[in-house]
């Protein structure tokens, strides 16, 4: 079949790593976004930094694909972006977008999940990172310690304090009246 004049028709097939990137993206985008959402407390912002991290992975995919754990690379980039100048530079842009997004419909998460994410936001960054990596990324203490370049004991301490703080917040939330009369 003759291609139309304005259709891009590849003379060379896409490199095999292209397909592997598609699979990699599909397999991990949502999990990573949930993890960043837990840390940032903003779903759209989490999605932005994860997408940006995937773009950076794609830009050097032939190298990243050969890493032992490409997901860890993307996660690290996303977390770095979440606290970087890149994120601050995009604040105004995201604010504007949120104004548009807010006008469009999506149903909000359930109150329990809002409370959990809100409680996470009250934790100091190190504790929040540890909690999110442990409970949302299923990372063991040793791996978090390695990632954070600290001792496992320190991570355990962060987790312990984080759990205590979360429990306090969530308990307080549960005992507060929610507007629905108890029977």
């Amino acid at each position: 079949m003759q291609p139309a004049a304005d259709v891009i028709d590849l003379a060379v097939p896409p490199p095999p790593e292209t397909a592997s990137f598609e699979r990699f993206y599909a397999a991990h985008f949502q999990d990573l976004t949930v993890q960043l959402y837990g840390y940032l407390g903003d779903r759209q912002e989490a999605q932005d930094v994860v997408q940006e991290a995937f773009c950076r992975a794609l830009a050097r995919w032939s190298k990243v694909a050969r890493y032992d754990d490409p997901v860890a690379w993307v996660r690290r980039v996303a977390w770095n972006l979440a606290t970087s100048r890149w994120r601050r530079a995009r604040t105004a842009l995201m604010f504007l977008r949120r104004q548009r997004a807010d006008s469009v419909h999506v149903a909000g998460p359930e109150p329990d999940r809002v409370a959990l994410v809100a409680a996470l936001a009250t934790l100091p960054p190190a504790q929040r990172r540890a909690i999110v990596l442990h409970y949302l990324a299923d990372m063991p203490v040793a791996e978090i310690a390695d990632r954070e370049r600290t001792a496992p004991g320190t991570v355990k301490s962060w987790l312990y304090r984080g759990r205590a703080a979360l429990a306090a917040h969530l308990d307080a939330g549960i005992t507060e009246p929610k507007g629905t009369p108890h029977e």
Binding site: Q51, P109, R113
Partner: peptide, 14 residues
């Protein structure tokens, strides 16, 4: 949270 959020996220796509 993870299960609920996963279903809410719409990836921009590869």
């Amino acid at each position: 949270l993870r299960a609920a959020e996963r279903s809410r996220i719409r990836p921009p796509g590869a």
